[in-house]
């Protein structure tokens, strides 16, 4: 199987949305732990060392959420201690923990998605839906760094002409606003020429084709099928109560004997992206060791 990173962008998008949607809808400890771990593993494999801040953020989130929830929620029967005449319950702490873990898992998966969705792929997704939007996105992605560079140049020029002094916050903000205003003039004026260049190359409001270097392969269909079917099954059976978990007033597992199968299915789709990624890395190592 091809990694999500190298798959068709639609496949990457569908898989990640399915996993997070399921995690958000089915709040069971047995499912959140694989979601969190699978997400963390997948993200770490993609981000490497640069993901340190996200890990810290996620850890903080879980802790803070576990501490904050009991302050708002006093449901539950297992009272740990009493604070300001209000009971702090084990159940509320656990719900906070679960919420934090859900959010952390979502952050990991979407963090991975942000790494995977390069601008090309973002465009591909939108290009299929609406070519005009794709063009707009492409143009905006081109203008943003251009504007950044231009605003730095304007600041430097104004400094070198003795017209731009760093002072306190207010005058600093004023100066920045002036630069921003000049930037706007420039961007609009420039934009007209860009628009003319578009028209000169045959752009008009009618239909246009969209070219992108991402073919849709059988492998992508497999990714999409596996994830959408799994998510549908998991969410449906959770909704009709075939398997489940309640927190208030007491933490109890509900549902029948098949619960374990559902957990296993979910764990599988959580770890699959990381596993495929890992397999590919291992194959590289193997190929290099052979030569």
């Amino acid at each position: 199987m091809r990694t999500l990173e190298r798959s068709n962008p639609f496949a990457s998008l569908v898989c990640i949305v399915c996993v997070t949607l399921t995690a958000a809808l089915c709040q069971y400890p047995g499912m959140l732990i694989p979601a969190l771990l699978g997400g963390a593993a997948f993200y770490s494999l993609l981000a490497g060392r640069s993901g340190k801040r996200t890990h810290i953020l996620c850890a903080l989130l879980v802790v803070v959420s576990a501490l904050v929830n009991p302050i708002f929620s006093h449901n539950g029967i297992t009272v740990l201690f009493v604070l300001n005449d209000r009971p702090v319950t084990l159940e509320a702490v656990c719900v906070g923990l679960m919420n934090g873990m859900t959010l952390a898992a979502v952050i990991y998966y979407f963090g991975a998605l942000t790494r995977i969705m390069t601008s090309d792929k973002l465009l591909y997704v939108f290009g299929k839906v609406s070519p005009k939007s794709a063009l707009l996105i492409s143009g905006a992605l081109r203008f943003v760094p251009l504007l950044g560079a231009k605003s730095r140049r304007i600041e430097e020029t104004q400094t070198a002409l003795g017209l731009y002094r760093k002072g306190n916050m207010i005058s600093g903000a004023k100066n920045k606003l002036k630069v921003f205003s000049a930037l706007t003039s420039w961007a609009l004026e420039n934009g007209i020429i860009t628009a003319d260049s578009m028209a000169a190359r045959g752009y008009s409001d009618g239909r246009r084709t969209y070219f992108a270097p991402y073919p849709f392969r059988a492998c992508d269909a497999v990714w999409i099928a596996v994830y959408s079917v799994s998510a549908a099954v998991l969410i449906t059976f959770s909704a009709i109560g075939t398997y489940g978990f309640t927190y208030y007033p007491q933490m109890v597992r509900t549902g029948g004997a098949y619960s374990a199968a559902f957990y296993a299915l979910y764990a599988a789709i959580c770890f699959l992206p990381a596993a495929v990624q890992l397999k590919e890395a291992a194959r590289w190592k193997y190929l290099i060791s052979k030569t």
Partner: peptide
């Protein structure tokens, strides 16, 4: 094309 580009410029700004 011109309005499209101006919209794009606004997004970028």
């Amino acid at each position: 094309s011109r309005r499209l580009i101006i919209t794009t410029v606004f997004v970028a700004l």
